[in-house]
Amino acid sequence: MRDDGFKKQTDLHTLDQVTETQVNQALDQSIEQLSPEVRRRLNRIRVEAVEAKSGFRPLLQTAGAISFLLVLTLGWQLWPVKESQPLPLFAEELHEDPQLLEDLEFVYWMAEENISEKL
């Protein structure tokens, strides 16, 4: 009798497992048979959910890029352009410094004097 009770319990447990397996298999099959429309909508939902989190960032980057270009363009248009002045001639620079010229003449004169004495 004890064996019968144990066997009955085991049978019931097995039947539970069979039922559970049957239900899960049917549910797995039902997923495989989802309509293309449902699959497409699920795909779109997923993509939108993920993009929604990072969606603000591309928008910010685009806005930043446009703003930068705008500033660059306006700056290029409005920036005053100074007329470039010709560089002063070296002689003119020297001329503005008479002391330097005198010093140079003195050095040259000293050099010539040294050579003359040697000769």
Binding site: I31, R46, V50, K53
Partner: peptide, 18 residues
């Protein structure tokens, strides 16, 4: 992280719908 969570969601979306 976005790639990772997108992959996770693709795994569970059909069961969740059902």
């Amino acid at each position: 992280l976005n790639i990772s969570i997108a992959q996770f969601l693709s795994q569970v979306e059909k069961k969740a719908f059902r």
